[in-house]
Nucleic acid binder design. Structure first.
Lengths: 213, 213
DNA sequence: ATTATATTGGAACATTTGTTCCATGTCAAG
DNA sequence: CTTGACATGGAACAAATGTTCCAATATAAT
C-alpha cells in the first residue's frame, strides 16, 4: 500500500528535482526550507526523514547536500539504462578484415536497449562501404552493428573473412561437416560453400541500420 | 588551440565524474584532494580554477560541493540531446494503409540524433510484416522509421498506398510527367509505372533497422 | 475535555567546507 | 646564480550546513 505523498513532502521532492536539474547538485536544508516555506531546518529534516523512510531519497549523514534521488525520482539514471552506446569504429570493406581499433575521439551511436537482446556487450558499429554485400540486403552506406565473437550458431548472420579470395563478407553461416554453407540473406540468391578453415568469423551481425536522405 | 589537460587536472576531472556517478552529488574540496593525493585544499582550488578557466567545470562561490560538470564532461545531459525518441506505432503491412494512431502505453525507440538529418519531427517507427518489400531490401521484421509527409522529392524512398491493387509498398519515387516510376531499392529488380493519381504518399522512409538474432 | 500525534518554529552547536594568506620546493630561462 | 612561473603544503578563518534539543500550536483520537 504505497500511500500518496502529502503536499509538503511532494513539494520538497519536486523542488529537489528542479534544483538538481538547474544546478547539477542537490540543495541544502535551508535552501529547501526557503523554497517550500519552511522556516526551520529541523522541520525540513522532519520531512526529509519521511521521504527517506518511504524510499524516495537517500541521505548521507553530515554531508552537506548529501541527498540522492531514488527510483521514482531520478530521470537520468532511467534514460541511461534504456539506451545502449555502441562505439563507432569506421568502415567495413570487402577488401580487408574488420579493424577493431577505436577511432580517435570515441564516437558512439546510441540505440534503444529494447532493440537488442539482453547481451549488449562487445558491440561495435561500422559503415558498409561498397555494394558487395547487396546479397545480404545491405547497401553501400548502411551501418552494421556487430558483436565481436569468433564463432556463431547455425543460421546466424556473421561478418567473416575468407582467406582464399581474401575478402570480408556478411552471410548466414551453416556448419555442415567440415564445410560451411554461406547463405545470402536475400532468398533469391544461391548459397555457396567454403572449407571451414577458410572461414574466419569476425563477429555476429546484430543489427543493420540504413539511413536514407 | 585546445590544450590537453595535464595529468593532475584530468585526474581531478575524472574523480569528480566518478564521484558524481556514485553519490549523485559532487565531492568537496577535501574529498577531491584525498582521492588525488593533494594535501591542501588551496591546492585543489588551484587546479579547480584551471578547470573552470578552460571551461570544463563551473563553480558556485561559497557553496559546498558547488561544482558542475560542463560540456565535454557531463554524460547525461549530453546523451539526452544526442538521442531522438521516435514513437513506435506497430506494423506496416502490404494489405492496408499505414495507421498513425499511437499505441497505448506510448512506446518509443531512441536513436542517435547523429543518424538523422537535422529535421527529426513527425517521425514514427513501424515494423514490417511480410516479405512483400524484399525488393526494397527490407525483410519481414525490419523496423522502418518514416516521416509523415504527403509528397517526397524525386528519388526518395517513400511509403506509398496504391489505390488500384490496394496495397502499401516501399519504393523510390520518380515523378515523370503524370506517371510515377516506382523503383525498387534493389538494383537487380525492374521498376514499374503507375499513374500519379493512383499513388498516395504516406511518408518518407528515413531509416531501416534490421535486428538479427 | 483530555490525551496523543502530527506539524511547525527557534536557536544553539558541532561539522563540514570553501577562502585566504603565507611558505617551500622545483625547474627552466635569462 | 638569480628570477620567475609553476606546483605543493599548512594553517587560520569565515561561511555554509547538518544536528540536536526544546517549545508551541494544531489536529485527531479517546
Amino acid at each position: 500500500m504505497k500511500a500518496e505523498l502529502k503536499q509538503k513532502p511532494q513539494q520538497i521532492l519536486d523542488f529537489i528535482k528542479a534544483y538538481r536539474d538547474e544546478h547539477d547538485y542537490p540543495p541544502s536544508l535551508r535552501e529547501i526550507g526557503g523554497a517550500t516555506g519552511i522556516a526551520s531546518t529541523s522541520h525540513v529534516t522532519y520531512y526529509l526523514d519521511q521521504l527517506e523512510e518511504k524510499g524516495y531519497i537517500a541521505r548521507d549523514n553530515r554531508i552537506s547536500r548529501g541527498i540522492q534521488l531514488l527510483g521514482a525520482a531520478e530521470p537520468f539514471a532511467h534514460a541511461a539504462e534504456e539506451v545502449v552506446s555502441v562505439p563507432y569504429l569506421g568502415y567495413i570493406v570487402a577488401s580487408a578484415p574488420i579493424s577493431v581499433e577505436p577511432l580517435p575521439g570515441d564516437e558512439t551511436v546510441e540505440i534503444s536497449r529494447a532493440l537488442f537482446g539482453r547481451d549488449t556487450s562487445d558491440l561495435f558499429a561500422l559503415t558498409v562501404q561498397g555494394n558487395s554485400m547487396i546479397d545480404a540486403l545491405i547497401n553501400d552506406g548502411d551501418m552494421v552493428i556487430i558483436r565481436q565473437q569468433e564463432r556463431v550458431e547455425n543460421g546466424q548472420m556473421a561478418a567473416v573473412w575468407l582467406d582464399d579470395p581474401g575478402e570480408t563478407t556478411l552471410k548466414k553461416l551453416y556448419y555442415e561437416g567440415n564445410q560451411v554453407r554461406l547463405q545470402p540473406a536475400n532468398p533469391t540468391m544461391e548459397p555457396f560453400y567454403e572449407p571451414a578453415e577458410n572461414v574466419r568469423v569476425q563477429g555476429k551481425v546484430v543489427m543493420v541500420i540504413r539511413q536514407m536522405g
